[in-house]
Amino acid sequence: MKRMITLQVNGDTCEVAVEPWHTLLDVLRDQLRLTGTKKSCGIGTCGVCTVIMDGLAILSCLKLAIESQGHDITTIEGLGSADELDPVQQSFIEHGAIQCGFCTPGVIMSARALLDKNPQPSDEDVREALSGTFCRCTGHIKTIEAVKHAAEKQAGAGGTSDGQ
């Protein structure tokens, strides 16, 4: 039987009717039509469905919708503002880190979660944060670069960093 649940997505409160077996990904895409979050393997291996929940990158394909209540969820649609892209998004564009674009939202969300926790990540940290994602087109090379650049740019803008 369907139950009504309330989700906090990108700052909005959304009421949706779900079955227990619906994942957060199902609800985001099929009900809220937030189709920026992509669906691919469904078994935790590709990372395209990554969203940020309470500040952490998680896989929405392995999260039950009913267990997503009461958590703060950000999807790719929630990054940046009406006028300005998030620095990670901007950096991905500028550094050629986007090709087919299918994995891009998941990779960007993974990177965003990293920089929120760790504004000055090492090469190791960046690779680690992106390991759960999968990008056959760029071979992860320019995505790794783009995340590092976004971190530098953010540090520059925030003025908190003294470089490495």
């Binding site: 990372g47 998680i58 993974s110 759960g132």
Partner: peptide, 9 residues
């Protein structure tokens, strides 16, 4: 264990 994503969950 797994990836960051897996460990977050």
């Amino acid at each position: 264990v797994g990836s960051k994503h897996i460990r977050n969950m």
